[in-house]
């Protein structure tokens, strides 16, 4: 039975191939080059990043990632090492994804366990439209409203070189966290709703109250929660506009959160335009960009893997 089936499908495939050789589908002539062009552009970017940064890798070696010395010079080749912005990226993305994850869980639990149906029906779809706001809007709000609040809070006095403007690692993390929270909330809310109704009924029949139900259901979707957190981290790590406006733009190790700093993205955004004036800086920024590409593609790959595993587990659990 089985071999017959295999043969049948094999011959059908051959027939299809013959057919395509004989008469190419005109649509294919448009679609194939588009796909190839996309791949080619990605490859070209990677090639520029690799070849452009070679000089830095040769000159600085592993020290490029292991030291925070950043001294530009117009006369001779300066020293450009990115430990500080790299650490800043991790810290800002860490703060942002922690805030986003907390808000996302709080919003999802509120919407599904406490909010009246009308509220849920209005809020849930609007999460997506908030998530679609241009990032520069959040950047301006961060700079004009959040940074002054952070300054007035006096938290900067906790640090030796506390930010006089309110722009700091913390400020950037906070604003980015608030920005990605609606998206994370939509993901968590979606996962929450995907839990089959029979489990909700079972929890009620066992006498579980709002918070207790939420704990069990969040346990059922914890794979999705983790995936949302990792994807949020990747998104926050790559965020540029908001961070450039709120982080304070100083090459500074993030030992104290209320000091101004840089992330790799904000460093590139603020320096790349003038980098040609400083020998070696352009190459260093390309090297930093290459590192960021690796970091963000690693976290996105991990996040998607976790999300797929979570979906698979949820389906297995239902069966």
């Amino acid at each position: 039975m089985k071999p017959d089936l295999l043969r049948a499908s094999g011959s059908r495939r051959n027939a299809l191939a013959t057919h395509m050789r004989a008469k190419p589908d005109p649509l294919l002539l448009i679609l194939a080059p588009s796909a190839i062009a996309l791949l080619a552009i990605s490859a070209a970017i990677a090639a520029v990043l690799v070849t452009g940064s070679l000089d830095t890798w040769i000159h600085e070696g592993p020290g490029f990632l292991a030291s925070s010395e950043w001294s530009p010079s117009e006369e001779r080749r300066g020293t450009y090492r990115v430990l500080a912005p790299l650490a800043g990226t991790l810290v800002v993305a860490g703060i942002a994804s922690a805030i986003a994850a907390y808000l996302a869980v709080a919003v999802a639990v509120y919407l599904h366990e406490y909010a009246p149906r009308r509220v849920r029906e209005v809020v849930e779809p609007s999460l997506y439209s908030i998530a679609a706001l241009p990032t520069v809007v959040f950047g301006m709000w961060g700079l004009s409203t959040v940074a002054p609040l952070v300054r007035q809070s006096g938290l900067a006095s906790l640090c030796a070189r506390g930010s006089p403007t309110g722009q700091s690692f913390f400020t950037a993390g906070l604003v980015v966290g608030l920005m990605i929270a609606p998206y994370a909330a939509a993901v968590v809310s979606e996962a929450y709703r995907a839990v089959p109704f029979t489990y909700v009924e079972a929890l009620y029949s066992l006498g579980a109250k709002g918070f207790e139900r939420a704990r069990v259901i969040l346990g059922m979707v914890k794979g999705s929660l983790l995936a949302a957190a990792v994807l949020s981290f990747g998104r926050a790590a790559g965020e540029t506009t908001v961070v450039t406006l709120t982080v304070g733009n100083a090459v500074n190790m993030p030992f104290c959160l209320f000091e101004p700093g840089h992330t790799v993205s904000s460093l590139i955004a603020s320096q790349f335009g003038n980098a040609y004036l400083y020998p070696g800086m352009e190459s260093a920024l390309l090297a930093a960009a290459l590192v960021m590409v690796l970091v963000s593609s690693a976290s996105t790959t991990l996040g998607l893997k976790l999300a797929r595993a979570a979906i698979k587990r949820a389906r297995g659990g239902e069966a």
Binding site: P196, T198, Y199, E201, A202, L206, G207, A208, K209, E212, V216, G219, M220, K222, R313, G316, G317, E318
Partner: peptide, 22 residues
């Protein structure tokens, strides 16, 4: 319920213990 619906992420023990614990 009509379809068996133990909480798939909880252990056998925790599934039985959930009511008394709550």
């Amino acid at each position: 319920f009509q379809t068996p619906n133990p909480f798939p992420h909880l252990s056998i023990y925790d599934n039985v213990a959930i009511g008394p614990r709550l």
